[in-house]
Design a protein around this nucleic acid. Structure first.
Lengths: 221, 221
DNA sequence: CCTACCGATCGGTAGG
DNA sequence: CCTACCGATCGGTAGG
């Protein structure tokens, strides 16, 4: 964009016509980011089908046609929300696991591993800036097959970390039955919290984590 | 409707104009029922917001305006789907519990009670004619406050049956931690199966029930 | 990124 | 329950 070089030739340009943007809402890639944030928020609150691209545009102070300068169409915006959400979730999962391993004097127990994963999942699902993942979970059907492919690979990567942990628990006798079914049921219990968890309520994410572990994992006595 | 008395005066009336309906799709309350079934199916497959009342009308061979002869508006149709679904689910839950109690030589154990409830819930959620409950779970947000009130009372009635069972398990030591949180997590695990369960797949509803019990309930050794 | 616009679709209604 | 219709809204585009 030639704005900078033009600025050298017309340094005294006054603000007239439509109001100037303030510094932190200028072009960059941050208009795109703003659209993604607003879309995630609205898609979560009203669902994909009931959110108009006009709603999203208005939420970031754009006119109705402008989102299509940044995204090819409404579905591409949805796919981008989900991909960004999963990338951030993967990142957060890695950081938590690495930190937990680094902090453990001996090897981390399978139970402690699961605790870290569950706690991290609640952060990804219910924490601050967490609209993206519920949108991914609940608006999945609107993706085109190719977009589903991309997102489901990220989901598979996320879930793959859980597999050896559950298998270890099963070897210990702390988990019974088929681990694949157990994993699906566990993710169900966790993901469903997005339907009822109230951040203002009495239970914290740590409380939820504790309740989940007590429910899923037999204590070894 | 005066059709019958008029028929006495014109018994020879021939079929002309638009084709006659066959016997089992005649007026009655069964056009309303047909609309409910079609609506449940489409609301589940495409979501409430993306299903047009025209889609629903076409699915039962009506014209676009006709659903509004049976239902005041689109939301009333959704509410009726949910209410019917919950009434049937409650009925089914009662029948299963009564049958299990009648069949038990001694008192039913808490664990067996939970098994019956879980198995019944899978039937309500994943069995034949089961679109209504997933619609209730996933399209909840479209209800008006007053409709939410009605449906949530039915849900409360459904869940109330589970409470003493979970409390009994907790007293036995087969369930740890807060029972209210446990109930929410358990329902999450069960309800989420609507997202991934494939009736054509390898696991039966009995398999799912077994997996759920193994996951949630500690065996008492 | 805005302006101005298009074709399509939607929920719902009057009148029969 | 159909016919004929309305006003509103929507995703998306051309042209700048």
């Amino acid at each position: 964009m030639p704005t900078d070089t033009l600025a050298e030739e017309a340094p005294q340009r006054r603000s007239r016509g439509r109001p100037r943007k303030t510094a932190d809402e200028r072009d960059d890639g941050n208009r795109r980011q703003a659209l993604l944030r607003a879309a995630a928020h609205l898609f979560r609150r009203k669902g994909f089908a009931a959110t108009s691209t006009r709603d999203i545009a208005a939420a970031v102070g754009m006119r109705s046609g402008s989102p299509f300068y940044h995204f090819e169409n409404k579905e591409a915006l949805l796919a981008a929300v989900m991909e960004e959400g999963m990338q951030r979730a993967l990142q957060h999962q890695r950081e938590r696991m690495d930190a937990a391993v680094a902090a453990a004097p001996d090897a981390l127990s399978a139970r402690e591993c699961l605790r870290v994963l569950v706690r991290g999942h609640f952060h990804n699902l219910l924490g601050p800036e967490s609209d993206h993942i519920p949108v991914m979970l609940y608006e999945w059907r609107w993706l085109a097959p190719q977009q589903k492919q991309v997102v489901s690979e990220l989901m598979a990567e996320y879930e793959a970390v859980w597999v050896p942990v559950l298998q270890a628990l099963r070897r210990e006798g702390a988990l019974k039955g088929d681990t694949a079914l157990a994993r699906l049921l566990i993710f169900g219990a966790l993901n469903w919290t997005a339907q009822w968890y109230d951040a203002e309520g009495s239970a914290s994410l740590d409380d939820l984590t504790e309740a989940a572990l007590q429910l899923f994992v037999k204590d070894l006595e």
